[in-house]
Design a protein around this nucleic acid. Structure first.
Length: 572
DNA sequence: AGCTAGACTTAGCATGGCCACG
DNA sequence: CGTGGCCATGCTAAGTCTAGCT
């Protein structure tokens, strides 16, 4: 209804044909041109601050204090987070207080000198009551909000890029608030300021209807850059980085890019043996730089580690990837649990997610690691002669378009394909086959270290499921007893009933197994970002599994190109 | 060669709507 | 008819990588 005026396949099929000849870029969009026409309505700004009602009080040092609007707004950000552990953290409090004071009037600044004397509890209670009231709203009131959201989406949520009406991913500007980084972030608690039209750069085509800034305001800039895909950008004040409004994954421009990514990974498949032989040779190189590069690449390939760019110290949480590993992140065990040459990894990766793994490696790798660690302090770089730029330049020489992250995509996708082959039992019914699919998916998630903390309700929900299973077992026993005692003419019907219950039981048991195995593993990220969707589509076709069992609505939209093009014999 | 800005992908967590169940 | 749990979705932080500069 709302998406492209053309079926999703149309543009893609024609570009596939040109892509295969390597002409796609040149033919449709010469030299990095991303579009010819781009029209949109601009961003939706965060709602303005609504001052608190008079009866909601803030107390300083036990006394009521009326705050200026600006100071009050920032105070409400803190009050809304009061239940969170991080409002007790020193860094969070220090950063918050510093930024809050900047918003205060000079009188406020001279009075409010100690955060510990600030009492936000009344404000906090007010917000809790508000959110409670929101939950208690009548159907009509809720519907009204829903309608308004839909209207907003309809007006601002779409753009026209070339001949397609496309969904925009994030057309709402991020509201102001307190920055919460992941892990031990040095900037946690800082004030994320309100974005104004004057901060906004609009990107659209010259011949489009240019979006109007809100009354009384101006855009920072309107530009017409068709070498980029974004519609709107602004500079964020915490890290000083640029934020963008871009298209939804279902859009042509994102879909084609995604497809290209998997095609690059498939090209790696063709030369990965050669590359592996090469880096194994390089373990013996006379040059330290070459050895380090070769060992790092081995880790990236074998363990699906991220590249590991350098980060500015003190600006972000202390996390690492392969090239930025430090001596303190690995332990060498000449022998461990009956295995030789074991490397024990323990470090924080992206999003401060812990990577912990004990890996037996080849003797040569082990000896090299010992060499790299000689005469170094724990906080020294393991690969002191290497960085991602050097590594990627090397990879580029091995294969056009090859970078470190392609190994993750390649290894994830090839693992899924292998595991599906290995685990799918042709005689299984649909739920059992889906369990096999999820297990294959799980193997990938483990490889990519996509872990999650077990859901808070995990134990409880497992118990609920188990009691459902027990009840179903009872029901089955009853049905069987009835079957036995039934008269001949009722037997067939009774038998059918037992069969149906049996199937339901089986389904529940499969569900329990799946959930148990999935306790600490997140499948979503690999499914969305690493697994060539054509593998899954082909598998569904081959075994007669409805695609809806594997991909939800959003995922089907994102992977429309694959659903459309992959046949059951597709090979990654 | 090294550095930084810029553009784009990948990531986990919070939220809220919906549906099964009592 | 209300409630509790689950999953889809939204949000935005945090990575990767390139291009362009010095």
């Amino acid at each position: 209804m709302v998406h492209s005026s053309l079926p999703p396949s149309k543009g893609l099929i024609s570009s596939r044909q040109v892509l295969c000849t390597g002409m796609w870029e040149e033919e449709r969009y010469p030299e990095g041109i991303k579009w010819k026409f781009l029209e949109h309505k601009g961003p939706v700004f965060a709602p303005p601050y609504e001052p608190l009602p008079e009866n909601v009080k803030f107390y300083y040092d036990g006394k009521v204090m009326k705050l200026s609007t600006k100071a009050e707004e920032v105070a409400t950000f803190f009050a809304k987070m009061l239940d969170h552990e991080y409002t007790t953290k020193e860094i969070f409090r220090k950063n918050f207080f510093k930024d809050w004071r900047k918003e205060m009037t000079s009188e406020e600044k001279s009075t409010i000198t100690n955060l510990s004397k600030c009492d936000f509890t009344h404000m906090s209670q007010y917000f809790k009551a508000q959110s409670e009231a929101r939950k208690q709203m009548s159907k009509e009131e809720k519907q009204k909000i829903k309608d308004e959201n839909e209207r907003l989406l309809k007006e601002y949520g779409y753009c026209v890029m070339d001949n397609h009406k496309e969904r925009i991913a994030n057309f709402k500007i991020e509201p102001p608030g307190l920055f919460r980084g992941r892990g031990n972030h040095p900037k946690m608690g800082m004030l994320k300021r309100r974005i104004m039209p004057e901060d906004i750069i609009i990107n659209c085509s010259k011949d489009s209807k240019i979006p109007a800034p809100p009354p009384g305001h101006k855009w920072k800039e309107v530009r017409h850059d068709n070498k980029v895909t974004w519609l709107v950008s602004w500079t964020e004040n915490i890290q000083g980085s640029i934020k963008y409004i871009m298209l939804n994954p279902s859009s042509r421009i994102k879909g084609e890019k995604d497809w290209q990514k998997y095609e690059t990974a498939r090209r790696l498949k063709k030369c990965v043996d050669k590359i592996r032989n090469q880096y194994r040779e390089d373990w013996k190189s006379k040059e330290m730089k070459v050895r380090q590069r070769a060992v790092a690449l081995y880790f990236i390939d074998k363990l699906a580690l991220r590249a590991g760019n350098e980060k500015e110290e003190g600006e972000t949480a202390d996390t690492v990837g392969c090239c930025s590993l430090r001596v303190e992140h690995i332990k060498l065990h000449p022998e461990l649990d009956g295995q030789e040459y074991v490397v024990e990894f323990d470090f924080l990766g992206k999003d401060s997610i812990r990577y912990y793994n004990k890996v037996p490696v080849e003797k040569r790798v082990f000896k090299n690691l010992q060499l790299f660690m000689e005469n170094k302090q724990p906080e020294d770089d393991l690969f002191d002669r290497l960085n991602t730029s050097i590594l990627n330049k090397h990879l580029q020489d091995l294969m056009e378009g090859l970078t470190a992250k392609v190994f993750r995509t390649y290894n994830a996708s090839i693992t899924l394909q292998q595991q599906l082959k290995e685990l799918t039992n042709p005689d299984d019914n649909i739920p059992a086959k889906i369990l096999s699919y999820n297990r294959a998916n799980r193997a990938v998630a483990i490889l990519c270290n996509h872990q999650r903390a077990p859901p808070k309700t995990f134990e409880k929900s497992m118990m609920n499921l188990q009691s459902k299973i027990d009840a179903k077992k009872e029901q089955l026993a009853d049905a069987r007893r009835e079957l036995k005692s039934a008269k001949a003419d009722a037997k067939v019907r009774r038998d059918e009933k037992s069969k149906k219950i049996e199937e339901q039981l089986m389904k529940l048991e499969v569900q329990a197994t799946d959930r148990e195995e999935n306790k600490q593993i997140a499948l979503g990220t690999s499914k969305l970002n690493y697994l060539d969707p054509r593998i899954s589509v082909a598998w569904c076709k081959k075994w007669g599994i409805p695609i809806e069992k594997i991909y939800n609505k959003t995922q089907r939209e994102k992977f429309a190109w694959a659903i459309d093009m992959a046949e059951e014999d597709y090979e990654f």
